[in-house]
Design a protein around this nucleic acid. Sequence first.
DNA 1: TTCCGGACTGGGACCGGTCCCAGGCTAGCA
DNA 2: TGCTAGCCTGGGACCGGTCCCAGTCCGGAA
Lengths: 353, 353
Amino acid sequence: MGFTVLPHRARYSVRRERGQVMPKQVRGPSMHDVAARAGVSHQTVSRVLNHHPSLRPETRDRVLAAITELGYRRNLAARALVTGRTQTIGMVGPDTADIGPLSTLHAIEKAAREAGMSTLMTSAEPARAQVLETVEFLLGRGVDALAVAAQQSEITMAIDQLNLDVPVVHLLAGDQDVTLAASVDQQAGVRMALGHLRDLGHERIQHISGPLTFGEARSRRATFEAFIASEGLELLPILEGDWTADSGYAAGRDVAAEATAVLCGNDQMAFGLIHALHDRGVSVPREVSVVGFDDTAEARHSLPPLTTVSQDFAAVGRAAVGLIVARLAGSDDAAPLIQPELLVRESTAPARG
Amino acid sequence: MGFTVLPHRARYSVRRERGQVMPKQVRGPSMHDVAARAGVSHQTVSRVLNHHPSLRPETRDRVLAAITELGYRRNLAARALVTGRTQTIGMVGPDTADIGPLSTLHAIEKAAREAGMSTLMTSAEPARAQVLETVEFLLGRGVDALAVAAQQSEITMAIDQLNLDVPVVHLLAGDQDVTLAASVDQQAGVRMALGHLRDLGHERIQHISGPLTFGEARSRRATFEAFIASEGLELLPILEGDWTADSGYAAGRDVAAEATAVLCGNDQMAFGLIHALHDRGVSVPREVSVVGFDDTAEARHSLPPLTTVSQDFAAVGRAAVGLIVARLAGSDDAAPLIQPELLVRESTAPARG
DNA sequence: TTCCGGACTGGGACCGGTCCCAGGCTAGCA
DNA sequence: TGCTAGCCTGGGACCGGTCCCAGTCCGGAA
C-alpha cells in the first residue's frame, strides 16, 4: 500500500458573499480525532462513550484522557441522525406568563436534564390552528415526546386527537380524558379547603371558578358542588373568572350578600376579590373568609395573608418526565396523583353570627 | 447493466431485549422518497426547500406536491450535521420561578420562533460550577447562541469570561460590563419614580434594594444615590432585600421613622413592606408612600394598588433575539435600551406635614 | 454553422456519530 | 494438541441532509 495524502480538514474557512468575509461555523474535534490521539479506532471511542462492558480499563482510560485533552464533545446531530432520537422533550406552554404553568415547565426542565434530556419550549394560544402549528414546529425539530402544560380543553383535546407517534403527557389536565396525565388531586384540594371553612362554621360558601374551558376549573367546580350537596348546604350561584386578579375584582361585585366565605379558583382572583370587598367596605376575614389556590409567592404577604391550597408544581413536572422516560423505554408507568396541601393563614376566620 | 435488488427500507422494526419486543423509532419519508415520487433528484428537492432561484416553476410545484402527499418533514439532525448550525438558542434562566426572568424567557421563545429558531431552556443556580455545567450542557446540545437571563454577577461574569465561540447575549444585566446586552433603562426608571415622589413633596425617601449581587440592583441603587445627592436631599440608610416578599417584610422593621416614602427594588418586596408597615400600624399611603418595580399582575389589586415602574420584558426578549440573529448573520447590531414606564396608583400620596 | 453563457438539473462526497459484522487473541476443555 | 467460547477491537455501511462540481439544453451572438 502506498501513502495517501488526506486533505487537511479546515477548522476555519471563509465564504465570500457580496464582498464580505463571513466566519463559518467552527467545528470541534470529532470522534476520529480522539481515536487517532488515543491510538484506537473510532468504534472504540464510541464504546467508551456508551459504557460498553467489554473494554480493557487501560484502553478506556486512554480514550478518556484523549477526550479531555482535546476537549471533545459528542455531536448530537450526528447521533440523532442515526438513532432517530433527539433526547428532547417538546413543551407546549400557555401564551401567558402565568406563574402556575411556567413553574411547571420550569420543573419539567430540571427533571428532564437530570434524565439526560433537554426541553424545547414553545407556547400556544388556545386556537386549533395555532396549536397544530406549534405541534408541527416541535415535530419538525424532532422531539421524542410532548409535554403539554396548556390546559384549555381546546388545546388538550386538539393535541390528544392527533394520535402522534411520540408519547404525549398532559399536565394538570383536570377532568379531561387524556391518554397520559400528571396531575394534582383537585378533589382533595377542594375538600380540604371546604372542610376548613365548614369547621369554622361557614354554611353559605360561594365559589369563583376559573374559566370552564380549563379542565382543572371544571374539576374544582364539580367537587365544590358535590361537597355542598353532600353537606346539605345552600348552593349559591357560581361565578366564573378568567384566572386574573381583574376578573376576581369584577366578581367581587356579584358576591352574594349572605355569603360568609368564598373559595377562589386561584390566588390571583382571590387578591382581586379581596380588593373589591375592601372597596365595598367588607372586611376580610371578619365578615367574609377567602381561600385561594396555588400559594403564589405573594400569598404570604397579601393583606390579609391568604389561606390557600398549595400545589407542588415541581412534583408534577418530575412525574411528567418520569412518565415520558418510562414510555420511551417501552414500559408503562402509572401516573401518580400528587397531593395538595392546605395552608391556613389569616384570610379565613370563624363565621360571623 | 443488470437489475439491482435494493433492500426494502423498513419503516418499522423490532429489537429483542430480554425477551421483550420493543418498538423502534418510526422514520418518516426522506428527501429521496420525495425525489423519487416527483421524478427528480434529491438535489432538486433540496433546492426547492432552500428557495433556489433557478428552478422551473413546474418542477417546483411537482416537488411541493410530492412533499405534501408524503407528509415529508425535513430532518434537522441531518441538516445540522452538515451545516454545523442547529438553529437553536440556549437560554440560561434563574433557578427560581420568578415572574420577571421567566417572562423574559417566554418572550425570547416567541421571538426566536418567529425567526425560525427554537429555544433550549435551562436554569442555573448562582454558583460557578453550576453555571459552567449548564453552559457545557447547552454547548453539548450544539446551540448556536446563548441568552442569559440569570442576572447575578456571578453567573453573568462567569459566562462572559468563558470567551465562547457562540454569541452570548445578557438580558437585564444592569451595570455589568458584558459584551452584548439587552436591557431596560434602569436609570430612567428610578428617576421617574423618584421624580414622582419629589413632586408629591417627599424629602426623606428610603430605598430597599435588591441583592447587590445583581447588576440591576446596583444600577438602581447607584441612580438612587445620585438622585438624592443632586436634589440635595437627606440620604437615609439603604436597606438590602433578596427580591422576595419575605425580605421586604423583614426590611419593614428597619425603615426609618422619619422616612415618608420608600422605593422598593421590585413589587414583591413592596408587598412585604406594606404588610410589615400595616402590622406596625403605619398607613400606606397616608403616612408612607411606597413605589415598586416590575408591575406584576398582582400590583394592580394589592391593597392599596401599587404605584410601580413597568418594564416591558417582552421587548427585552425581542431585542435579545434581534441581536443574536444579527450576530449569526455576521453583522453587528446596536442594542437598544428599552424605556420603562411609571404607573401611578394608590400607594403614593402627597407627603404628610 | 459554431461558439458561448446562462438556466436548470443530477451525481457523488461529506458531516460525525451508531450499528452490524468479522477478526485476533486468550483461556478452558476434551 | 486441537477446538471452541468469550473478551476485546477494528472496518465499513448507513442515517438524511448540504455542498461542490459537472453536465444538458437552449437562445443569441459571431
